[in-house]
Amino acid sequence: MSGYSRQLTVLFWAALIASPLFLDGWNLGLLSQLMIYGIFALSLAFIWGQGGLLCFGQSLFFGLGAYAMALTTKDMIPGIPATTLTGLGLAVILPAVVAGLLGLALFKGRGLYGAYFGIVTLSAAVIAERLAINWSYIGGFNGLLDIPPLRVGWGSWQTELYDPLPFFFVVLVAALGIYLLLLRLERSAFGTVLRGIRDNETRATFLGFETAEYKAAAFAVSGAIAGLAGALFAVQFAFVSPAILGFALATEVLIWVAIGGKTVLLAAFIGAVAVKSVENVLSDTLGQYWLLVLGLLFVVAVVLMPRGLLAPFLQLPLPRALRLSGSKEE
């Protein structure tokens, strides 16, 4: 645990806010993209680091959000007006509902745990990918093209956010907002119960907590955030395809979070940003060897540094209410 974790956290966000001063449009677009992956990583870090639920199918919710956004703004869902706001709303609500229901179905009673949950969520993502490939209304294998950009404003004054700069600020506000929200949640009583379940579910049950409902609620929050990341992704690329629902992305996000550190939100966020930007730089020079290096780095991180490479430096001090217990910080 570093004594400078708070300063580092503030410094990181300040640097992000100031980055338009130094970066041109192209790199701002790139940074927005990295932050979208960062938001996605936050959603997984919350459920995995705090809740102890190893979700191998997080891309399911990312893809659901992306498709919800794409279908709404392209006016392909009858009865729902094609606006940015309804699109974002649906992209958050739909994955949240799916995740919540899936969570309840899997956790209630003699629920699934550990590796079983991982394999089931992985299968769910594979099923969703297959469905999307074979559902021609939502574009089938080719996906959906020409997703309109974000549209802000009211009534007669409306404008579309084509430029990288305003879009960058939208993503930045989303990232910072979600980070603060999850941090608040993590440090609330809810987060404490969640960690209690993670560390010993039987004990939490005996203390009178409905662990299944807590886990399902956390899963729903995580799904909603992954969905929002997916929606922003769809807008930025103006394109969605079944691949973002499936296996490949689901495991990629696991790698980012594991390398960064699952128990510390900012570490997971930076893990995504760092791995992706290193990939952008190195995939040219290393070529085919990049994935080999990444795979081995991931193994090393899991085996030797299960807390992640960045988490030890960014672990924030415990909230005051929890410090009195005298327990050591996890």
Partner: peptide
């Protein structure tokens, strides 16, 4: 790898996934 993580059940999934990624890429190389 594996002998270091027998007692960490969940980590076996992650570590073997990394191995899988590396082996597959090795075959591609």
């Amino acid at each position: 790898v594996i002998r270091r993580i027998y007692h960490r059940f969940l980590d076996t999934i992650l570590a073997t996934w990394g191995i899988s990624l590396a082996l597959k890429q090795l075959v591609i190389v």
